[in-house]
Structures are given as structure tokens and as C-alpha cells.
Design a protein around this nucleic acid. Structure first.
Length: 584
RNA sequence: GCGCCCGUAGCUCAGCCGGAUAGAGCACCAGAUUCCUAAUCUGGGGGUCGCAGGUUCGAGUCCUGCCGGGCGCGCCA
């Protein structure tokens, strides 16, 4: 149940009645009609723009429409007060009982609270991480990984049918380099002195075990063999090993993706040829010559006829090449096949999470999706800006020599997966952000994850206290749901309840906007209200949660606390974080 | 040269597909504290929302042009 959409329905019904009565003209468009909490709570609980929205098409004054609607709204169950304000806002106040009901519904649903069928089970594909399989994940992957994972969880919560996908870039020249590097380690494992790892090879120690495994499996048959004999086998073996490494890194962060699509396999299975054939049949491919980029022409640039995709027909700036000069497909070509494959698997809605350095690639990919799906498919690309790793307010230099934090795993080991997950979502994805190793583990209000967890701990603490005072009182969820709570009328109590009641709406809005960071801000706000309420109890003991001499009031307050806990559980659940019960 | 992203308080950032006097945290100043604890709370000062136009009942939010910062710009992925 979403209280705001419930009242939006009431508003629409009233408009309909006014139309029937001839007070408003027929055919009014109410798509942009809102029923939302006003920014300033003193204006009421729910505000609607209906009168202002309808004024022009109806040819009437906003305030006249507002007057008519206000009369109707006053009759709606649960509405205690209706006011017309400003240029024609209609502000409603709801009776306490409405909010009390919301609270009961919330705790009754537990951690599932906020889940809805908003997405109507529509299939959505979220592709994220998608790193080159050439080594362990590094710090730069952290943000996009967490972002994609939590966005997927958020969409799932909002009622979409979500698939979490990893696209393996295993078809380019970089995996040949990987194979050669791996072969070097294989030689090393067989006792050959390889000296320093030469330029142009991957130097990481993580290839040593791969070399040893190759030696064990294949003996010395590739020791002095020409590359053509071992490259494919070594490459396949090493990519598998790297993917195991990456999957382990992801698991350490709490990330588990379901589908891993191999670029190489797409190419080998002929998916790229078939996909591009589709585009060609639609007339979106031609052979032409591109202009050199202005201002920054490559030195060896020379005009050359190429196989091009008509990206300019779909909003891109220039047409994009699909084939390299050696005749093989470009990365873009196989990525088209990748997205076409997803589309054919039933995903009309696709979301890709990319790093900032890929921003220039967005338009062409969206153009391609629009082209091959004839406008039926939609691709949203979420660009995650870079994260500056800091320590005590100073940027950390990340050279491989000095840096112990170049790998994602090292970061997770240092501060814990939950801190990484939460902190990466405390900013909009397209804003740059800092990750301060010291600050994220500090126990202060400045550290959002701590602040929220502290609120969770206080909720549990109050229950523990209550049990001490009333050891015989059943405090199960069933009992709490049946507990009378009409005594919760203090402003701070109702404020908390309203935030709890607003949770389903927030989940829907965050899901629609593909903006998981809104969850973090909401939880922070909820925590702030709880801490404020808690502190009020130390000034006015009648507001303390646990009232040693008033069992009924204590139980009612526990319902409130349970509501707060429910939202924290639900929100942290989306983040993949376990709420704490105590912080001692 | 072109494209994308960003520009809101001294600092770091929110601002819910245009809405009512622009919000937090940090820092600074002054106070509070029997439940989880000075790890928290209350109050205060502080902003021409980069600049200039435009769209309309109404713009931090949409459009155009500038300024400043970041990223990218055939045969890398």
C-alpha cells in the first residue's frame, strides 16, 4: 500500500465526479497530477497540484477549481483538514488513525515492506562490472559494481523481474596479451628463469598459480612451442582462471551475478555476423569514409572506406565503424550483438553501468538499440564517476609499488564489504566522490553507515530494555500488530510514522529514476528522526520509549520502534547490508 | 574543434521526471545528556543555486548562448 497513490486515486475520483456534474469540462488530462508530501511539512501531509494543472485546459481560475475539489476532499475518509494555499495548492491533513494504520501495515510486512508490484514483473537486464578478464578487480570497479548490484536489488523490490549480467570482454587483443603473460609464468613454473616481466605483459603475481597449473596439466609440451600451438588453449584456461578470481572478488563484496555472457562466444557462435546482418537488412549499415576528428586528428590518419553503422540517424554525432582494417569486428560490433542478444532474450528494458571513461560511447550504443529494436527496446546507461581514494583528507597515490589498496579485495578487507557498499551509494552516480579510508570507519554523524546502524542498534536496545521491565509480555510481531497505538500522538512520534509510511513511495521513485542513492538519504533522514526522538526522551521522560510503569504505552512505542526497524531492515536489505543489533 | 557529465553555504553534497520563505553533514559559536554511552541531541550565524537571456501562473530544476572543472573523441576494450 502506498498512501500517496491511494489519495491520488481519491483526487482523480473527485475530478471525475465534478466532470459528471458538469462543473468541469470533459477530456481533462490528469497524467501530471501529483499527490505528494509538500516540502514544508507545515503545509500538511499531502499536497496536490490538481487545481493549477486543470486551470488552463478547463479555462477556469485555479482557486475556483480548488474550492470545488476541497469540498469533495473533506468528505474523503481519513482526511481531517483541507486547505487551499499559494497559487492553488490543495493541502490535506490526514487523521492520526490513518498514519497508525500505515505503521501497522509496515511492521506486519517486515523486511518485505516497500516491496510492490509497481514494475508489474517486467523483465529488466542490469549489466554491470563487465571488467576485462585480465586480473583481479581493482578499486576503480568498486563503485559501478555496487551501484549495479543495488540498482538490481532495488528494481527487484519494486516488482521488476531482474537479471544481473556480466559481459566478459574476452575477445580483444588484451586477452592474447594475458595468454602470453600466462605462458611466461608457465615457463617460470617449469624452472626457467624469466627475469623481469617485459613491457607489454601483465606482471601480476596472480598469474603464477595459473602458470603452475598449466605446467601440471600439460607438462613441458608448450615450453618451446610456437605461439600458434598453445595460444588458444592457454588463453581459454587463463580467462577461466581470471573469471574465478573475479567471481571471488565479487563474492567478497557480496555480489552474485546470474548470467555471464562471453564476447568471444558471441563471435564464435556467429551472433555478431547474424546481428549485424539484421541491422544491414534494416538498412542501417553502409560502407563509407569518415571525416577525421577535428582538432585532434591522429597522426597516421588517412581516409579509408569502412563498414559503418548509421548512428546519426538515431541521434549520434557521427556514424560508427563496425570493422577493423583487418576485417574483424570492432568492440562496438560485438557489443551490438550483445545487446541484440539480450533484447531477443526478452529484455526490452536494459540498463548498463559503465565507468566515466566510457561516457562517449553511450549515444552510439543507445542508437544501436533503438535501431535494431525499431524503438521497442530501451537502454539506460548509468555512468559512474571516478572515486578518489583518500586517507585523512589527503588523496592517496595509487602506484602499484606503494599502494596496498589497488585491488578491490584489499579495500574490502580493510573496511568491510558493508562500508564499501553503503558509501558508494551516498552520492549520485554521475557525481565524483571521495572515499576516505579513515572517515568511512569513523563513528560519527558524518559517517552515514554508522549513523544508520546506530539507529538500528537503538531500536533493538529499546526492545531489550522493555523485556527487562515486562518479562511476561509477549512481544512477538503478531502481538505488536494487534497492539493499540492510538496514544502515539506526539509530533515526534507522528513524524517518525510518516517517514515509515512514505517508504513504499520512495522505493518506487528511486526505482523509476534508477537512483539507489535515494535509499541512503532516506535511511539517513529516518535515523536522524529516531536519534532526535530518543534524545527528547532524556529531556521529557514521558517520551522515553520504555515506560517502566506503563505497559500499554511501552508496547505502543515498541510498535513505533518496530516500524523504524522495519524500514531500516528493508532499506539495508536492498543495499545487501545486515542491520546490527548492538554496537558495544 | 566536437560530444557527454558536473558547477547549490567556507568544505563535501541532497533537492523526489517545474511548485509555495532553497536543505543536510562537516567546520565555527552557544547549550543539553538515567533507555546504546559526549558514537547522540537542541539552537545560531552563513547562499544574487557559475553568468546572461528565454519558455509560463511559477525555474536550482526545462531551452539557448557563454564561463569554469572532469572524461572521451577511426582500425582500444
Amino acid at each position: 500500500m502506498n498512501i500517496f497513490s491511494t489519495y491520488r486515486d481519491h483526487i482523480e475520483a473527485i475530478i471525475e465526479k465534478l466532470v459528471e456534474a458538469g462543473s468541469l469540462p470533459r477530456g481533462l488530462d490528469t497524467a501530471r497530477l501529483t499527490a505528494e508530501p509538500p516540502r514544508d511539512p507545515s503545509h500538511g501531509d499531502i499536497s496536490t497540484n490538481a487545481a493549477m494543472l486543470l486551470a488552463k485546459p478547463a479555462g477556469m481560475k485555479p482557486r475556483d477549481i480548488a474550492e470545488m475539489m476541497a469540498a469533495g476532499l473533506r468528505e474523503v475518509e481519513g482526511v481531517s483538514e483541507v486547505e487551499i494555499a499559494g497559487p492553488g495548492f490543495i493541502n490535506m491533513r490526514l487523521g492520526d488513525a490513518v498514519w497508525h494504520d500505515c505503521l501497522k501495515v509496515a511492521i506486519g510486512q517486515g523486511a518485505a515492506y516497500g516491496a510492490s508490484d509497481h514494475g508489474a514483473g517486467a523483465k529488466v537486464n542490469v549489466e554491470y562490472v563487465s571488467a576485462n578478464p585480465t586480473g583481479p578487480l581493482h578499486i576503480g570497479h568498486a563503485r559501478g559494481t555496487v551501484f549495479g548490484d543495488v540498482l538490481a536489488a532495488l528494481l527487484d523490490k519494486a516488482g521488476y523481474n531482474v537479471t544481473k549480467e556480466f559481459y566478459i570482454n574476452d575477445a580483444g587483443t588484451q586477452v592474447d596479451t594475458l595468454a602470453r603473460s600466462s605462458h611466461l609464468r608457465y615457463c617460470e613454473a617449469l624452472g626457467r628463469d624469466i627475469g623481469e616481466i617485459p613491457e607489454g605483459f601483465y606482471p601480476g603475481d596472480y598469474l603464477k598459480p595459473v602458470g603452475r597449473a598449466l605446467a601440471e596439466l600439460h607438462g613441458d609440451k608448450w615450453l618451446d612451442a610456437p605461439e600458434s600451438e598453445w595460444l588458444a588453449d592457454v588463453r581459454a584456461f587463463t580467462i577461466d582462471a581470471m573469471m574465478d578470481l573475479i567471481r571471488a572478488d565479487l563474492a567478497a563484496l557480496g555480489v552474485h551475478q546470474e548470467v555471464f555472457t562471453s564476447e568471444r562466444k558471441l563471435v564464435e557462435d556467429g551472433m555478431v555476423d547474424a546481428g549485424l546482418k539484421t541491422l544491414e537488412d534494416m538498412g542501417h549499415i553502409y560502407t563509407g569514409v569518415l571525416e577525421p576528428p577535428k582538432g585532434k586528428a591522429p597522426e597516421d590518419w588517412e581516409p579509408r572506406p569502412q563498414t559503418l553503422f548509421r548512428a546519426t540517424d538515431f541521434g549520434d554525432d557521427v556514424d560508427r565503424p563496425l570493422k577493423k582494417s583487418d576485417g574483424s569486428w570492432t568492440y562496438f560490433a560485438s557489443d551490438i550483438a550483445n545487446h541484440l542478444d539480450k533484447f531477443r532474450r526478452g529484455f526490452a528494458e536494459m540498463i548498463d553501468v559503465w565507468g566515466a571513461d566510457h561516457a562517449g560511447y553511450v549515444k552510439r550504443m543507445q542508437a544501436a538499440v533503438t535501431a535494431f529494436s525499431a524503438g521497442e527496446g530501451a537502454l539506460d546507461v548509468k555512468i559512474c564517476q571516478i572515486v578518489r581514494l583518500m586517507d585523512k583528507g589527503e588523496p592517496m597515490k595509487m602506484s602499484k609499488r606503494a599502494g596496498t589498496f589497488v585491488t578491490l579485495r584489499a579495500l574490502v578487507d580493510e573496511v568491510g564489504p558493508e562500508v564499501v557498499r553503503f558509501h558508494m551509494l551516498t552520492r549520485k552516480n554521475d557525481a565524483q566522490m571521495d572515499f576516505d579510508l579513515t572517515a568511512v570507519t569513523e563513528k560519527t554523524r558524518d559517517n552515514p553507515i554508522f549513523y544508520v546502524q546506530y539507529a538500528s542498534a537503538r531500536c533493538h536496545s529499546s526492545r531489550r530494555q522493555a523485556r527487562k521491565y515486562f518479562p511476561n509480555h509477549d512481544m512477538s510481531l503478531q502481538t505488536l500488530v494487534a497492539t493499540p497505538i492510538s496514544c502515539l500522538t506526539d509530533e515526534s512520534e507522528l513524524g517518525l510514522i510518516k517517514i515509515v509510511a512514505g517508504w513504499p513511495r520512495l522505493v518506487e521513485a528511486a526505482a523509476d529514476a534508477h537512483e539507489p542513492h535515494r535509499i541512503a538519504y532516506y535511511l539517513y533522514e529516518l535515523a536522524a528522526l529516531l536519534h532526535a526522538f530518543w534524545d527528547k526522551g532524556s529531556k521529557d521522560s514521558s517520551l522515553r520509549i520504555v515506560q517502566g510503569d506503563d505497559e500499554k504505552l511501552t508496547m505502543a512505542r515498541l510498535v513505533l520502534v518496530q516500524g523504524v526497524q522495519t524500514v531500516i531492515d528493508s532499506g539495508l536489505g536492498i543495499f545487501g547490508i545486515e542491520p546490527v543489533e548492538e554496537m558495544r
